[in-house]
Design a protein around this nucleic acid. Structure first.
Length: 494
RNA sequence: GGCCCCUUCGUCUAGCGGCCUAGGAUGCCACCCUUUCAAGGUGGAGACACGGGUUCGAGUCCCGUAGGGGCUACCA
């Protein structure tokens, strides 16, 4: 099915403002967003804050910031405004109340005066709400109301028959009406429940396709009946599969923050955690798009705009997926590898700075190319190349366990280092290729393997066993600094 | 418990009755390249949950079983 029968395509992401933006919500939003963009439609952000108890101040900003970081532009919402606002449900209360009472007048819903105690008793009895106020005579209802008795408005669900609806991802889905309860539409505090609010809003905001997580599938028939009772034309529906924990057990959305997987890897779940971990937005988007949907042509790496050209909700895999976090690590490396040097330098700079380094732009620009192929996340730059940005004056000779290479002791190490100094001094051209050739000759001359000589130099000059290529590194450090460090190492061996 | 959804390599997936001796990716292993680590190259192990049908023919359609996920609130 295409959206051609419903123009324009209007999709909304409708989170509750309960805290930082979770990656699971982004995945659902992304599929809707891709669909909207594919069809030249609009993407709307609507805040569903009808549960006051759960609302967390600042959530809206966090949600918007997350979309900004990812580059998923929003056409209408609390920040951007739009012709169908306000886009925050708590500012639309009268609308829901009006329609709830309209349904009561039409006999499609009713006031229920059950107290919390009554409800608790019924719950203990095990069968849920028993519809005891469904057929209350109007006189009694009026009396209770005039006595100031609190009530909710419940939907009159058909007691028999079946309801089926079409889901774009799974096709026809059928339910027995008797399974459904007389769900609350309007709470006693005057706030609507999700069931009423989203329908009223989706209708008034002219939403063409309702895209939402699969946990809404059980209430799909209820919603269909409410749409019918309201007499409104129904949108299309797509119930999106959800992300499961990496081991495939349990919903990922239950994790409220970063956690350690069974193999010890750290698993981010909040958008700001992806930022903190040094992932690139393009990689995260590519990663998410590859779960439950695939680009085709056996391609795993593709841009957002390429995905937009091909995406269709009907192609989404209906099965939930374990969260393949290891793939993000790889994908992020791919994106870093192919990133533009200046762009990457711009991303690396704040990472270095927040780790306490003073960053010289020119030096960073020289370091990035030799780093690019070995970074998986932006944060890897600290361990791999932080030494470039340390105070050089503070550089100290590394301990012997780093300095000594295979089958080498202090004497051998010293021999190599001492031989290196005059060699470096003699090089008019200090480019890494020239160094490579010169040190290869040196190794041969003094009877050591290339790896031993090169490794010794690496350790002496970087203080690390793992680093960017030795000669490229020395080239950037410069002749004088390289020699100074080698001498330092040499002296430490006396 | 009841209802609904789902089920291809460890994981993400391709597959919409014959193109499948099941393809790609990741992860893992080996080898090559090699100044470490990567990257890159080559190769390897690795799956149609099970049982019945339907059909000339089933990973692909149907039923059942098992397993997984979800819903069952005056939460969304």
């Amino acid at each position: 099915m295409t959206a051609d029968d419903r123009q324009p395509v209007r999709i909304r992401y409708a989170p509750s403002p309960t805290g930082p933006q979770h990656i699971g919500g982004i995945r659902s939003a992304l599929f809707g967003w891709l669909f909207a963009r594919r069809h030249g439609g609009q993407f709307i952000l609507r805040i569903e804050d009808t549960d006051q108890k759960r609302s967390v101040p600042g959530s809206i900003e966090m949600i918007q910031d997350a979309f900004d970081w990812l580059g998923m532009d929003i056409d209408e919402g609390p920040r951007q405004g739009g012709p169908y606002g306000p886009y925050i449900q708590s500012q639309r209360l009268e609308l829901y109340q009006t329609w709830a009472h309209w349904l009561v007048e039409k006999g499609q819903a009713y006031k229920c005066f059950a107290t919390a105690e009554e409800l608790a008793q019924m719950r203990e009895a095990g069968s849920g709400y028993d519809r005891r106020y469904r057929d209350l005579d109007p006189a009694t209802a009026k009396r209770l109301e005039s006595q100031g008795q609190d009530y909710v408005i419940r939907f009159k669900m058909p007691l028999t028959g079946k309801t089926s609806g079409y889901d774009m991802i799974r096709g026809e889905v059928t339910f027995d009406n008797e399974q459904l309860q007389d769900t609350v539409l309007l709470k006693s505090d005057g706030f609507p429940t999700y069931h009423l609010a989203h329908i009223v809003d989706d209708h008034h905001m002219k939403i063409s396709h309702i895209t939402r997580a699969v946990e809404w599938l059980p209430s799909f028939p209820l919603h269909l009946k409410i749409w019918e009772a309201l007499g409104w034309e129904k949108p299309h529906f797509a119930h999106l599969p959800v992300l499961l924990n990496p081991n495939g057990k349990g919903k990922l959305s239950k994790r409220k923050e970063r956690f350690a997987a069974a193999d010890g890897t750290s698993v981010p779940v909040l958008v700001h955690e992806f930022i903190d971990a040094g992932y690139l937005p393009a990689a995260v988007l590519n990663f998410l798009t590859n779960i439950g949907w695939n680009f085709g042509d056996d391609r795993e790496v593709f841009s957002l705009s390429e995905a937009i050209e091909r995406f269709d909700l009907t192609d989404v895999n209906p099965a939930n997926s374990a969260y393949p976090i290891a793939k993000l690590h790889w994908l992020n490396g791919q994106y870093i590898q192919s990133a533009d040097v200046d762009h990457l330098a711009g991303l690396l700079k704040p990472v270095l700075q927040s780790a306490g380094y003073e960053v010289d732009d020119a030096r960073l620009r020289r370091v990035v190319p030799i780093l690019q192929v070995r970074l998986k996340t932006l944060n890897d730059v600290i361990a791999m190349a932080g030494f470039f940005f340390d105070e050089w004056d503070c550089f100290a000779a590394p301990p012997t366990e780093i300095l000594f290479q295979k089958k080498m002791d202090g004497r051998a190490t010293k021999q190599v280092l001492e031989a290196s100094i005059p060699l470096i001094e003699s090089l008019a051209d200090f480019g890494h290729e020239r160094q490579y050739a010169a040190f290869k000759d040196l190794a041969k001359k003094i009877g050591y393997k290339n790896g031993q000589v090169f490794g010794t130099l690496r350790a002496a000059v970087t203080g690390q066993r793992v680093s960017p290529p030795t000669f490229e590194t020395m080239e950037i450090l410069g002749k004088a600094e390289s020699i100074r460090r080698i001498k330092l190492a040499c002296d430490s061996l006396e």
